[in-house]
Simulated assay, not measured.
Amino acid sequence: MTPRSEPLLWLQLIGVGVLPLEALLLLLVLAGSDPGPLPGLERLLCWAIGALAPALLLMRRPADVWSLLLLQTPPKGRRELQRRLSRLQATPALTLATAVGAALGLPLLWWIDRQAAVASPVSPFSACPRLVALLLAALLLALMLWQWQQLFQSLWLLSRKPETVAGTAPLSLGELEQQRLSLGLPLLLPEPLLLPEPQKLSEPSAVVPVAVEPEQRTEKAEGTDLDQQVP
């Protein structure tokens, strides 16, 4: 019962490469409009809508680890291992990671908005009003925060030992609906990965030395000399 046999946990790690691309898209969105008379206030409101509010929700109801936002594994069709891992999501470490991700969203948004004028010639959102750009930026921040939490959850669960998973009670369907944020169509039914079992090295057979008494050695030696004298 190892978490490394679940393919969705490995699939969530794609967020490492997706997050920089979403930051680039955020730059292009903000580059399509000029900042208003109070750009600092606009950034604070955008961050509060796109990062702070979703962070409070995700700390209260963490994102379901078996949800890819658009698709998810049906709750009634989940394996026992998946339900055990769902209960292991409730840990203060993941709550702290979500809070850190929301806090990092503010300086990221602030820096990108200040540098957005550099990308204005290549931005496809050049005719976008400032309000629409800020709303799109808030949506991107919420998406980045979701993937940030999913990334840390996957790393956390992949590092759990099989003994820890086996000693954890499965999460019931009612607890899942009340304690987890499950989004997406219930269409994901991936099969577990077939991992090779560790081979146990066979112990070498112990050779017990047999002690030969001195009298037996003398008799064997005399017998050998007589055999050599006989033609």
Rank of each mutant, 00 (worst) to 15 (best):
T164A: 15
A103V: 14
L109A: 02
A119S: 09
E163S: 15
A116D: 02
Q149E: 08
V122N: 07
W148L: 07
Q153P: 00
V100C: 10
L145Q: 04
L141I: 08
I112E: 01
F125G: 01
S126R: 14
C128Q: 14
K161A: 15
F152M: 13
S126D: 13
P162C: 07
P124R: 04
S120T: 14
S123P: 03
L141S: 06
R114A: 14
A133G: 13
M144F: 07
P162T: 08
W111M: 10
L106K: 05
L131V: 15
G167P: 00
D113E: 13
A117H: 15
A102P: 05
A142I: 06
D113N: 02
L106A: 11
V100M: 12
L106E: 01
V122P: 01
Q149F: 04
D113W: 00
L157M: 04
L158I: 09
L106Q: 00
A142K: 10
G167A: 15
G101P: 01
G105F: 00
P124K: 05
A138D: 02
Q147S: 12
R160T: 12
L135Y: 03
P124L: 09
S120F: 01
V118M: 09
L151W: 11
L108K: 01
W146M: 08
P129H: 11
P129M: 12
A137M: 07
A138K: 07
S126L: 11
L135T: 12
W146I: 11
L141E: 09
A137S: 12
T168W: 08
K161W: 11
L145P: 01
Q115N: 11
W148G: 00
G167F: 03
D113R: 03
L136R: 06
A137K: 00
L140V: 05
R114I: 10
W156K: 08
W156V: 04
A127R: 15
L134T: 02
L135W: 13
V122D: 07
T168K: 02
S154H: 05
W146R: 10
L135P: 00
W110R: 05
C128D: 08
G105W: 03
V165N: 07
L155A: 13
L158T: 05
L143P: 00
A103C: 10
A119T: 08
A119I: 11
T168N: 07
V122F: 14
L106T: 06
A116H: 03
Q147Y: 10
V122Q: 09
P162F: 05
P124E: 06
